[in-house]
Amino acid sequence: MSEQEYYIPDGTYWPIIGSIGLTTLFVGFANQMHGAEWGGSVMVLGFAITVFMMFGWFGLVVNESNNGIYNKQVDRSFRWGMSWFIFSEVMFFAAFFGALFYARQLSVPWLGGADNNIFTPDLWNAFSASWHQMAFMAPGSVTDTVLQSGTVMSFPAVPATGIETATPAMVVDPWGLPALNTALLLASGVTLTFAHHALRAGHRNQIVGWLVATIALGVAFLGFQILEYGHAYHDGLKLTSGIYGSTFYMLTGFHGFHVTVGVIMLTVILYRVQKGHFNADNHFGFEGVAWYWHFVDVVWLGLFIFVYWL
């Protein structure tokens, strides 16, 4: 098919299936959080429909691509689409990094009386603004406080959700598992680069080897991450441990989710490499996934440096 021809794909049912899947997932999730017994199963069902949609839709596109239906213009549209999708991911992580910086540089010092926050000693008996000890005040430890004006203010001692609170003993030590995990993920970036090189040089066996190594490193990373969560949890750092726990788990958690997605995508790419879907000149599927993996890798590097060190 020559490049001058426009291509318009056939209609499919996959979009509407995706909408139904996501709606089922969210409705189930919300009801599960509100204590409905059926919520969890509906949520799993919605998740299954969504995954089914993704395999179906991507499978359709891969088939059409292999049948040579697409032209270079379609290929460029996919490239634009992928790049701006990743930019939206960057902005999503930026919101959480922003929350981390704001809490660490502004709100916690302010709560501790930085600048001229004169109310702090009155409102927060025995409060010290250290990063790791940020936790919800234990129940009963905050009492009604009388301001100088005589107004009585009371503060909720526990969040409205009534979840048990905890205070971590200290921040997570960056020398142990986090450093190891950083090394693992960086190594996966290196192996992926070798796979990329092998693909461009047309050495299929080498690609498979390097890809398998990349996937293995990714899986190892996830395993150690779970292990580290266990340690941190044991030491009292929980999602409910105030802003430190919140930012720590949400940032690393969303990152871990992206690593999981990346591992799945790399596995699909491995399968497609073995099926011979790519050649040295035309391998956008590989490039898109590779870039995604590099992005996830850089996010981790940012996490390692900003969450653990600086």
Partner: peptide
């Protein structure tokens, strides 16, 4: 139970 917008948790 996260504390992003809750001053009691920092």
């Amino acid at each position: 139970g996260t504390a992003f917008f809750d001053a009691t948790g920092g």
